[in-house]
Design a protein around this nucleic acid. Sequence first.
DNA 1: CCTTAGTCCTGCATGC
DNA 2: TGCATGCAGGACTAAG
Length: 266
Amino acid sequence: MPELPEVETIVRELRPRLTGDRMRSIEALWHRSLCGDPREVNRGIRGRRIMELFRRGKYICLDLEGPRLTIHLRMSGRLLFITSPAEECHIRARLNFHESPGLALVDPRKFGRIRLWHEAEPFLPDLGPDPLDAETVCNVLAGVISRRAVKTVLLDQKVLAGIGNIYADESLFTARVHPLTPAGDLDNNQRVRLAAAVSRVLREAIRRRGTTLSDYRDPDSRNGGFQHQLKVYQCTGRPCPVCGTTISRIVVGQRGTHFCPRCQKK
DNA sequence: CCTTAGTCCTGCATGC
DNA sequence: TGCATGCAGGACTAAG
């Protein structure tokens, strides 16, 4: 699943190749992959210059001289440059440019969404700050007084934008915090550890170009490398790399959650 | 305020 | 081998 590090990797690949180019069209091959009326979206983007590419949380964002285009890959989405006539399955949409090769949204599960935002409308409202900076994360966590499980809070995009299931579990393990700890009960030490862990894990995952478990690929179809660094995520039944205790799996907020019951005490 | 369940989807694992 | 079932999961919505 593309989370912040995977999306960051994608944006870094797209930026030098698309900045300054112009939009030609967006074709929706699956009607729900493109939000709104496709003809209206195409009127809104045709000929527009891509001023800037950036990431907000898990969103790929294109600044089109005012209006903005966002792409969210959700579960299984990939954004691939269309190079050879290589037949990719599950193409749900195509982005066409004046100069650059097109981009295919390949998305078996059809959850990915492309959306055009008009200049006047609030852009990605309700999205919390990005969690790459430990101090920001610490301040945000200090402001959470809720008794919700800390793992649920980490996954809440209104609180922090970009953390998904993989990096939530890995960060909690690194910080030695139990995923069910009520967020408001974290003491200062735990908060500082968790904030440091979140930013460190995300930065390290970016450095490794993301995690490829099954679906994720960068725009040139290359795998990430962080899957070799995972300590608890999908490691149920294997020994904890720190203490050797068997990694447990529980469900928290309808999400599979992996942790070491010895290192991460409540 | 909060949690839970349902929705969207398909590939894959499981079980008979 | 083949079929049915169920599960995963990010974001959103509705109900309690």
